[in-house]
């Protein structure tokens, strides 16, 4: 069992991160923590890509370094994905600011009650 998973421990970490992220998004009442959970979730997936690109004993994907290189494509992709993730976080935090301005709370449960009292 351990032999089967030891070389793939990065995948385990990936799914651990996905799990923690999902739990934070569902279980946390604080909206900011939900956004942090979302970031963790995405990070798990980024790690998955980078791990997939890894080649034992290879150097980073920079042309001046000696071959063999690790696969460069996932690195490029994840660079893009990180940018997307940052933008998402920015929008999410912007929305949270507005929610706080309107309702004076960041607690999802309280928010739910306030909204249903309207």
């Amino acid at each position: 069992m351990i032999d089967a998973f030891a070389p793939r421990y990065l995948y385990l970490v990936t799914f651990l991160l996905l799990g923690i992220g999902t739990y934070m998004m569902i279980g946390n009442r604080n909206l900011v923590k939900k956004v942090i959970g979302m970031n963790l979730f995405q990070t798990g997936i980024f790690l998955f890509f980078i791990a997939a690109a890894y080649v034992e004993g290879a150097s980073p994907a920079v042309l001046t370094r000696e071959a063999p290189h690790v696969s460069p494509l996932p690195h490029v992709l994840i660079l893009t994905a990180i940018v997307v993730g940052v933008s998402l976080t920015a929008v999410a935090l912007g929305l949270i600011v507005r929610i706080y301005a309107d309702y004076g709370t960041l607690d999802a449960d309280v928010l739910w009650e306030v909204r249903h009292d309207d």
Binding site: T22, M25, K34, A92, G94, L95, R115
Partner: peptide, 28 residues
């Protein structure tokens, strides 16, 4: 991203809450 921003563009908190929820679920 554009959709989240557009949904949240209505005045008031309701659309912001809806947009945030959309953002979280949509991102997942």
């Amino acid at each position: 991203l554009a959709t989240y921003v557009l949904v949240g563009s209505e005045e008031g908190g309701r659309s912001a809450v809806a947009a945030l929820r959309y953002l979280l679920v949509g991102t997942v």
